[in-house]
Design a binder for these strands. Structure first.
Lengths: 349, 349
DNA sequence: GCGCGTTACTGACACGTGTTAATCACAGGA
DNA sequence: TCCTGTGATTAACACGTGTCAGTAACGCGC
């Protein structure tokens, strides 16, 4: 075994000053006068001993952890959300690094209680939490927020005015349906990403309705089906739409994963995409570029969401909250081939 | 603002015992006798006050953080590795949760020094580190290991005998090439996943060579090309192989991402997969199932790797290291359509 | 009555840092 | 000579827990 970890006392002894002075120098405490020679002596001593302050001690004394956590609910939509995880993490960790914070990653598995994360907050494990996939019926959540613990939700939670970050699902749906309308389609079906209990599902439906209405086309409930995150549900939903006496000429499938299932259903009937049926997806998962035909879709800015959530949370932690604490990020229409707007080409997005 | 956080002293006062007793009860310290009534009084008091121990204080006193970190080097292969991140994280956090640990996620961005992670170890931020994508020329790494700090590498580092976890790349390549040989191919090309500087690339090449030799086919360097993680490199490499006077009838592309580029090159020449050229990939990324034709490939057990790394590290931290500290996990051959072994069907894997 | 072991509990120190209030040396003005 | 302000430094306390060494009470054998 090597020698023991050096402490700030060791640095102080080596530099011939008090421990307090070491703390002042290493933390660059403002409004404290330290002579340049002393400062240098301390820095030299610290370097010579290869001194790193003990984080736990520092946290205990300062009362701050400089750590935030991402609480990741692993629900029925796990595979769907896993596609966003790398981007979201990258965005959050970038913000964290920018402000000098660390990130704790805490998935909540299905067999755990939903409020397993409160221990992180109550035990002062972290200074704040980003909660992805919050449940509206979670009392601990409201309690934490009432007690002033910094929280940011990924995904809206109607009712409670908790700071949140989300993508503008309704506008994204308007972009998708608007694109199909511009291509001349009048009879456009909808397959949602998820059951109506999910707010994102409601919002995308709302955008679909808005786009149609502003084009003077009446909303027809008979053209709406509900997906359930996976391909199977997309296949069934598309089958159901194609069985209609007068099937749609285009379908907005509000999830790429579901859209992949829909494509299969269409192909199995010998129909061609986009010539017979045009398709626009949502999410822009990695696979969207590679399937046949490449999927026109709505890109969700995962990194941007992560950055926004991280920055918002840290600013709240530091007592400098922005005026607007409900952030909405814009989506982007990615035109590929499944919508019929462009012919096959070498373009690569 | 609500009232202050309760401390163990508050619990002690409410229960009418000493703080020491509270600690004994809540931590279930063995070999300490506490009467059942006292124990219950303490538990009731803790519950009544909604007491959660202060993690930082506990860490300082105990000298242990019960936290491990995943250090994630974001190098030139970032997009390729992002595909594994969710699985790896799930495996690690499962192991962490099983042993009562937390996970810190620490990406190292390209603009940071390679050894930015040492602060985590030296400052006792975590009890141990999992390093993904280690560099052999990193002196801090060897120094940490020499000082007895618990480390586990994801990916081999030849030379230093640091505990590590990796997939058996060579055997995976043998599986892939063996499958092509069994289908009757004699002239099999290789496109690696990465330049030869990457050990995984060397190992997959080695497996390719072994499989051929054990089938009595001499290794021909002229059939080997080096990929570079992305599709472009796969396209170029495949073009180069197809330009040969006697092109191969099958190609083992040791990366699905690279294979996608190769498929494009083949299709652009009007050739069909698998009828004219058979392809087997490596990694089993999500997109592999969805491209046309669905890619036969070698599945890498991301969750298993994560679990193995997490468990190995924690056992080392707890002073109970297994005898074998170099773990190798097996890959799995996933047969789809790009190899020509099965005709188009409804199967879904 | 006294020594002794056992049960149930506590006092006091340690962990390594941040931070406030105080101290000291010293120069300058009256 | 004494008072005062200021620049440089430090003593001392606080943060909330884990844990060792001890103590008080009590039963028991002789």
């Amino acid at each position: 075994m090597g020698r023991k970890r050096p402490t700030s006392r060791d640095v102080a002894n080596l530099a011939g000053v008090s421990r307090t002075t070491v703390s002042f120098v290493l933390n660059n405490v403002p409004d404290v006068k330290i002579s340049p020679e002393t400062r240098q002596r301390v820095l030299d001593a610290a370097r010579q001993l290869d001194y790193y302050p003990h984080v736990s001690a520092r946290r205990l004394a300062s009362g701050r952890t400089r750590t935030i956590a991402l609480v990741w609910h692993r629900g029925p939509d796990a595979t769907y959300r896993d596609a966003f995880l790398p981007g979201l993490l990258q965005g959050i960790t970038r913000a964290a690094r920018h402000y000098g914070y660390h990130l704790l990653f805490r998935p909540i598995e299905p067999d755990e209680p939903d409020d397993a994360y409160v221990e992180l907050a109550r035990g002062r494990h972290t200074d704040g939490l980003i909660l992805s996939g919050p449940r509206s019926d979670d009392p601990s959540l409201l309690e934490l927020h009432r007690d002033g613990f910094p929280l940011v939700l990924h995904g809206r939670l109607p009712g409670a005015d908790i700071p949140s970050v989300d993508v503008d699902n309704a506008r994204g749906a308007v972009q998708a349906v608007g694109h199909l309308l511009a291509l001349g389609h009048k009879r456009i079906g909808l397959i949602t990403n998820a059951p109506p209990a999910y707010t994102a599902s409601q919002q995308r439906l709302e955008g679909y309705r808005l786009a149609l209405e502003s084009a003077g086309i009446p909303f027809d409930e008979g053209l709406v089906r509900y997906g359930n995150f996976d391909e199977e549900s997309g296949q069934e939903a598309a089958d159901s739409l194609l069985d209609l006496p007068e099937p749609p000429t285009a379908i907005f499938v509000a999830s790429d994963m579901v859209a992949i299932g829909s494509l299969k259903a269409i192909r199995d009937r010998g129909l061609r995409v986009p010539q017979d049926i045009a398709i626009v997806g949502f999410d822009d998962i990695t696979a969207a570029r590679f399937i046949t035909p490449p999927l026109t879709t709505i890109r969700v800015p995962a990194i941007g969401l992560g950055w926004a959530a991280g920055e918002l949370l840290i600013r709240i932690v530091e007592g400098d909250p922005p005026r607007e604490t409900e952030v909405m990020l814009e989506t982007e229409l990615i035109v590929r081939q499944s919508c019929g707007a462009v012919e096959r080409s070498g373009e690569r997005r």
